[in-house]
Simulated scan of single mutants.
Amino acid sequence: MPNLVRIAPGALTIGKPLPWTVFDADGNVLLRQGYVIQNDIQLEQLFERGLFQPRKIERPQDEILEDTRVLNPFSEYPLLLQTLESTLNAITRREESALKRVLGLSRMIDQMCQESPEASLALVHLYSIEPTIHEQILFYAILCQFTARRFGLDDKRIAVLISAALTANLALVPVADKLNASNRVLTDDQRAVIRKHPARSIQALKDADITSPILLKIIAQHHEQADGSGYPQGLSGTDIRGEAEILALAERYVAMITRRAYRERMNVVEARKLITSLANGKFRPAIPRALLTVLTEYPPGTLVRLANNEVAVIVRRPHRHRGPFAKAIIGPRGNRYNGTFERDCSLLEFNVRAIEQPEVMPSMDFGLLWGFR
């Protein structure tokens, strides 16, 4: 059968029907369109052996627009996730718009982080209880933007890094949510999928004509470690690009503050301690220092209990020798305030007494805390 091509990682998902019939290299039918993939082993076999006949999907050019508005991270959140999903789908379908979509989304995230830095960091911390894989990828990109700027990378390198953060885990998209929801020890097949995901993501990008050498190298190296214990090549020291280490650290931090079926999430104080320990061998020290400087002791979006027993949300990091600022949302007796009250946490009565880590975040329009209407 003519025009058969390899199945790209990210194109198939466990529990969802096949979008097309899958063939082997000789053109024999392996599985017919509509078959629901049952497990990791089937998914692995399809990635290894499966071929399909792609349909060319024409999309109007005006679908991809430049956005010149000041972006409210909270109101844009659903759009960002939808755009990320459609961008990754465009890569796996080898659409002509794939590169343009990646670059457009990268610019949107960079713009948002520059215009609304406190709210953008808060987005990561307020929505990190049990995020989907697409949410996690968005958080990686946001943290990479901030860490890279603090580390001193120029605009061009930051743009490539954000694009790498958005695409490096493309091959894990079909299985990540299932793995995070499982409290069982990983099987050998699941470990193989994880270890192969950098190479498979790279291949999917190449198939979609996204071939930036730096972008692909960041993805290839983002699970290497400075002490040589990483994969796939066991690189060490300066053989690993700084951008790859920044992406790796962003992924680690999100994993720390995220709840998984097999463990509870850390609070930001615990996560900071672990990041500090990673500077001694796993990463070159300047990169963890850059992330810790960005986060500060209490990052925006952290829920805290104040000395007066109010519960507040950190809205601004320390600035010009003044401590972090918060907005109180719950009174000392547990009553929800009608509105919010700004608190300077450098004042004794509003000092941070403890981190609050609720199982469910309070229901409110968080954008209001940062002045968005």
Results as ranks from 00 to 15, higher is better:
197 H>A: 13
234 G>H: 08
257 I>G: 00
172 L>R: 10
193 V>S: 08
220 A>Q: 14
223 H>L: 10
229 S>V: 09
219 I>M: 06
202 I>H: 01
237 G>C: 07
196 K>D: 15
179 L>Q: 01
256 M>H: 12
250 A>V: 03
225 Q>G: 01
257 I>K: 00
193 V>Y: 04
258 T>R: 07
255 A>M: 12
235 L>F: 05
260 R>Y: 11
261 A>K: 11
257 I>V: 10
232 P>G: 01
169 N>T: 11
195 R>Q: 14
194 I>L: 13
231 Y>P: 01
184 R>H: 15
226 A>K: 03
223 H>W: 09
172 L>F: 01
194 I>N: 08
221 Q>K: 06
260 R>F: 13
204 A>N: 04
181 A>I: 07
256 M>S: 08
175 V>Y: 01
230 G>F: 08
219 I>N: 01
207 D>I: 00
217 K>V: 03
201 S>F: 01
191 R>F: 11
216 L>C: 09
193 V>M: 13
225 Q>A: 12
207 D>C: 03
247 L>T: 06
171 A>Q: 02
212 S>K: 11
184 R>W: 11
215 L>G: 08
225 Q>H: 14
260 R>M: 12
241 R>K: 14
243 E>V: 05
253 Y>F: 14
229 S>T: 15
256 M>T: 02
181 A>D: 14
175 V>D: 00
175 V>I: 15
170 L>R: 01
203 Q>I: 03
190 Q>S: 08
245 E>Y: 09
220 A>K: 10
210 I>R: 03
237 G>K: 03
259 R>C: 04
193 V>R: 09
189 D>A: 14
222 H>V: 02
244 A>R: 04
256 M>Y: 15
200 R>N: 15
221 Q>A: 04
198 P>S: 10
192 A>P: 00
180 N>K: 13
244 A>D: 07
201 S>A: 09
196 K>E: 14
241 R>V: 13
254 V>K: 00
228 G>I: 04
185 V>K: 15
233 Q>T: 13
256 M>G: 13
249 L>W: 02
171 A>K: 00
196 K>P: 06
170 L>C: 06
196 K>N: 15
259 R>T: 09
206 K>G: 06
176 A>N: 05
215 L>C: 07
231 Y>K: 09
220 A>W: 10
202 I>E: 08
183 N>H: 13
231 Y>I: 09
181 A>C: 09
200 R>K: 15
